[in-house]
């Protein structure tokens, strides 16, 4: 997808945007062309960034979590040195500044936000969802975490402590959710499917185990 946006406008049909653009959207094509003309960037460098970010998806986070659920030793390593644990799983975390994994328990739920901008572990999970970048999430996650989680359908009991992390600096946070009950017989691959993106941010729990349906 989008392999054409790196190409210089006018070089081919591909430089042409598909439909009406806002004034700011137009300016990024102009800025791109000027940077290319001046040799500050190359089309290959831009293309490489598109491919880099599109190769990052929440599936990486799901793989880390599912492995941690089935392998307690891996879980220890993931919590102690998340970047090393990523590299063990073939997940490239080298461009992350610092990476911290927050372990949920039956008694504790973590929620990650960036109130000042929208910091997110992009090198692992890819681009953040729109709601994560929204002003309302950035405003409310710190002083109304329970209300926010309830909006996502996650009613956290009063007895469970909520720990909100505002990622204001170089640390990037990933939540290690609690393994759902009744998933003892599931394979690592099946477990990965339960680890939805939003559970890695902490706003929801993973999907529940789906009981086998008689067909």
């Amino acid at each position: 997808m989008a392999d054409h946006v790196a190409a210089q406008a006018g070089e081919s049909e591909h430089g042409h945007p598909r439909h009406e653009l806002s004034a700011y959207a137009r300016r990024v094509y102009a800025i791109r062309d000027i940077l290319l003309e001046k040799g500050i960037l190359t089309g290959e460098e831009i293309q490489a960034q598109i491919e880099y970010i599109e190769a990052r998806t929440p599936a990486n986070g799901a793989r880390l979590v599912a492995r941690a659920w089935v392998d307690p030793e891996f879980k220890k390593r993931l919590l102690a040195d998340p970047k090393a644990a990523c590299s063990e799983m073939g997940i490239d975390a080298t461009s992350l500044n610092e990476f911290v994994v927050l372990e949920n328990t039956e008694k504790v739920r973590h929620l990650v936000v960036c109130t000042l901008c929208s910091c997110y572990p992009r090198p692992i999970l890819g681009r953040p969802p729109d709601w994560y970048k929204s002003f309302n999430y950035r405003a409310r996650a710190v002083n109304d975490p329970r209300g926010v989680m309830r909006e996502f359908g996650n009613d956290v009991p009063d007895a469970v402590e909520i720990r909100v992390h505002d990622s204001t600096a170089d640390m990037r946070y990933l939540v290690l959710p609690v393994r759902p009950k009744g998933t003892e017989s599931l394979s690592e691959e099946e477990l990965q499917k339960l680890v939805v993106r939003d559970s890695l941010i902490g706003v929801v729990d993973p999907l529940p185990a789906v009981p086998e349906q008689g067909v």
Binding site: R18, V28, I46, L116, V142
Partner: peptide, 26 residues
Amino acid sequence: LGGTPAGPIDRTEHQLDDWEILADAV
């Protein structure tokens, strides 16, 4: 923005447009 008054969170997600992908990549 932390702690400022704010309403419900819009959970609609949009497919990124080419210009957004370009802005990100540049």
